[in-house]
Design a protein around this nucleic acid. Structure first.
Lengths: 220, 220
DNA sequence: GTCTATACTAGGATAGAC
DNA sequence: GTCTATCCTAGTATAGAC
């Protein structure tokens, strides 16, 4: 990892944990092992570092999803893997960031913050959600062809609903101490298939959530 | 409104729009019409103002929900009103705060931020979610007695899922520009009832979302 | 209860040597 | 590419008069 990458790496960690304003470049410099002023050789200002960090975060999640979804053909498996990998990614962010559980860190919360402060990020964030939406819609369409999923559902609406569901679960995990994501996860999947699964399909059985770690890029 | 209330009022508005760090007490003082130093006669420090603001925000939402749900007996109506009033509350926050649409403001996003910065808020936030969860669970239980809702569902899991759904929709509205909450809202309600509604119930029809403004406390 | 004046600090950013 | 030194500003907070 070169210095530039180290700066991004440490900054993203700090942004996720402390937020943009509470992340000091002095601390980042110390973590990287250089002096504060040296950061300005690599980046114009703090905002540029933030932009790069967000882009790096997005590409990391995308890779995680791709690794998890790639090669799978069955619609249920794809949708399940996608949901699982996003939740798992967020769930493990705190460990990846090197802090012990504490607060449930959330990638989309940081994106949302960035978006408000720096509207330029809109393109990147939209692009991220487009990717998820399209992956879901493809799976839904093929699932409707295979009779895994009822035809009555509009694929785009369903995709929106699934994304909202994931985001909501992650947000609630951060905010509501009585909400344990691992307890509701199975019922979340069950209810989704109960709703959209096609009864005419031969193998209608629900997925069982397997509590195995999914592969996450381990650069942290 | 006395000075203390004015300070809370203006602070909350600013916290919602700009976040904690980007809210300056100078600006708050100007909005209130006093000098910055005078704030410290009413509050020990910025943190205390934030605490009070969050508590005021929570009580405002609770009142909004209570106004909307109160007096209704039918489970579907109650659940529908609750979801609707939370979404509507968030949806209208920006107008209430006096800024023109811009970013979709979200009450729970501010709570989540506060929680991370000031763990003392945990009690208040948990209390808020407890209130929503209990309201939902009561409705679900009575709905299961009346055969409006299938008995197979665990009320607590269902409540969690509904809350997640709402939060997710609000977050996505803030972050994903292609996501229009008013377009997906009807399908969100439809899908919920398709899932949990009891077919044995006589009047099984779905709710139609009525795009009327719900009453929101108009102190702002 | 509100004001003026002022202390104090953190943190982003720049200049210029090596 | 990294360092030392320095600038600058914003923003919280306090002291004490009225």
């Amino acid at each position: 990892m070169n210095t530039r990458e180290k700066i991004i790496d440490s900054s993203l960690k700090n942004f996720l944990i402390f937020g943009y304003e509470n992340t000091s470049l002095l601390k980042v410099a110390e973590e990287v092992g250089i002096k504060k002023a040296s950061i300005y050789y690599h980046f114009r200002n703090k905002e540029e570092i933030f932009h790069e960090s967000i882009r790096y975060l997005i590409s990391t999640i995308k890779n995680t999803i791709e690794d998890s979804v790639g090669g799978k053909s069955n619609a249920k498996t794809i949708i399940h893997s996608l949901m699982n990998s996003i939740i798992e990614f967020n769930f493990h962010l705190s460990h990846m960031a090197g802090i012990e559980k504490s607060h449930f860190l959330s990638a989309s919360r940081l994106m949302e913050y960035g978006l408000r402060e720096f509207p330029d990020l809109k393109k990147d964030v939209d692009n991220y959600y487009d990717y998820i939406k399209n992956t879901l819609m493809d799976a839904i369409h093929s699932g409707q062809k295979n009779k895994e999923i009822k035809k009555e559902f509009n694929a785009e609406m369903l995709a929106f609903e699934i994304i909202s569901k994931i985001e909501g679960f992650c947000l609630l995990s951060s905010s509501y101490s009585k909400f344990n994501i691992n307890i509701v996860r199975q019922s979340m999947y069950d209810n989704l298939w109960k709703l959209i699964g096609d009864e005419n399909s031969g193998k209608r059985g629900f997925f069982k959530y397997k509590a195995k770690s999914i592969p996450i890029s381990t650069r942290w």
